[in-house]
Structure formats: C-alpha cells, structure tokens
C-alpha cells in the first residue's frame, strides 16, 4: 500500500466518522423513535379493531411496504415541491424513514400483541381494569418482550438504510465518503472503510440487543427469585 493511500485512509477516517456521529446516528435515533410511536399506535388500532382507523392502518402498511424506500424519499423531497411543499433534507429524511419503518414495526408489534393470551385481557376486565389500563400494564409489557429481537433487527437495518439519505443531499456518512472519493479517486479503499464504520455501529447495536434481551428475559426474573436460587444451590450441592 502506497503512503499516499494510507494517508488518505487515515485522514478520511475522522472525516467519515464525524458525519456519522453528527448525522447518521441522530437520523437513526430520531427516525426509529418516531417509527416506534407510529408502530405502537397502528398496531394497537388494529389489535383493538377500531373501525375506519383500522382500514386506514391497513392502507398505510400496504402502500409503504409496497413501494421502495428510495422512491418514497424522491416523492417527498423532489416531488412535493411541485405542490409548493418544501422540506429541508434532514427533516425530510426523518419523516420518510419514520413513516417507512413505522409500517414494518407496526406489523411486528401487532404480531407480538396478538401473542399475548386474550384471556389475560378478560381477567383484567374482571378485576375492574379498563382497556387502556390492561394494555399499558399487562399486554404491552409482554408484547415488548416478544417484539424486542425483531425490533432490534429493524433498528440495525435502519442504520444502514440511512445511507439512502445521501440521495436527498443529507450529508451523512455515505455522502461524506462520496465527496472524499470524488476528490481523491480511491473508491475501493474508501467505500470499504465506510462499510467498516457501518459494521462498527451495527456491532455496538448487536451488543446492546444482547444486553437488552438479557434484561428483559424471564430467566433474568428467575435469577432474582428465591425458588430458582434454591434449585440452583440444590444442583450444586448434588454435584459436590
């Protein structure tokens, strides 16, 4: 490897990482948080079978899942100005990503909600709780535990999808890399470099997912409780 190439790689590392920290990460966090709000609302509307709103939810999921993310970005960013609606690149990206991801996560959440036995809802009614109280205290906590791994999946793929925002002039990691490539003409090394930085981000998220799962899992509750500790100590005793 020539000294020049090595210099470019070292030099560009912070130039890529900084837009990553300043743009890619906030873009992901903002969009995913909004997507979760949309997902929970849309999933609950379908779960509770609210008239009209349910049809609207199905329509939303149908359209968003059936069209490419890139097309959605272009329609909102390059298309809407025709109607006099102009949105800045970053908010536009947040808007499109959250609407897009919201549709996928809504289906994940709906499946998780439906996996909680309906009998627990009836039991909640019978002890005098309202529907919303039952959802908040009984159903949603159980659904989140089930939905956590697939939602982590969605979050990880969103980190990478944010690179599409380069198409609507958001200067995130990928766009920053493209600019350095244009200047230095070292596409192979630089695109691999940015790929590795995405990999780094996703590795951190994967670690966080494992931590989260451990915290949420029923076995964690078990470790706390006296009966389980008793069983563990018994088996140790026997081994000795």
């Amino acid at each position: 490897m020539s000294d020049r190439l090595l210099g470019i790689i070292v030099d560009s590392f912070t130039k890529i990482l900084i837009p990553g920290i300043k743009v890619t990460i906030p873009l992901t966090i903002l969009s995913f948080s909004l997507a979760m709000v949309i997902a929970v609302a849309v999933a609950m509307i379908q779960f509770a079978n609210v008239k009209v709103l349910r049809q609207i939810s199905r329509f939303y999921i149908w359209v968003v899942r059936g069209t490419p993310l890139l097309v959605q970005l272009y329609v909102i960013f390059y298309g809407l100005p025709n109607l006099g609606i102009i949105i800045d690149p970053f908010p536009c990206a947040v808007l499109v990503f959250s609407i897009n991801e919201g549709a996928y996560c809504a289906e994940t959440m709906r499946a998780a909600l439906e996996s909680v036995p309906r009998g627990q809802i009836e039991a909640g009614y019978c002890v005098g709780m309202s529907y919303l109280q039952i959802m908040r205290r009984i159903v949603l906590p159980q659904a989140f535990r089930i939905a956590f791994p697939p939602l982590s999946n969605s979050l990880i793929s969103m980190v990478k999808d944010t690179s599409l925002a380069a198409n609507i002039t958001v200067v995130e990691m990928f766009m920053a890399t493209q600019r350095i490539v244009a200047r230095t003409y070292e596409p192979l090394a630089l695109y691999i470099e940015v790929g590795l930085i995405y990999l780094l981000f996703c590795t951190v998220l994967t670690g966080l997912q494992h931590l989260g799962e451990r915290k949420l899992s029923i076995t964690a509750e078990r470790r706390k409780d006296p009966w389980y500790r008793h069983v563990i100590s018994q088996s140790r005793f026997r081994r000795r």
Binding site: P117, G119, Q120, E122, A123, R137, I138, Q142
Partner: peptide, 11 residues
C-alpha cells in the same frame, strides 16, 4: 371471575 385456565398476568 375465575377462569378454567387461570388467566394470570404472566408479567
């Protein structure tokens, strides 16, 4: 109400 399959809140 007491149910056939208990319906305790699992969480």
């Amino acid at each position: 109400f007491v149910f056939q399959n208990y319906n305790l809140f699992s969480n």
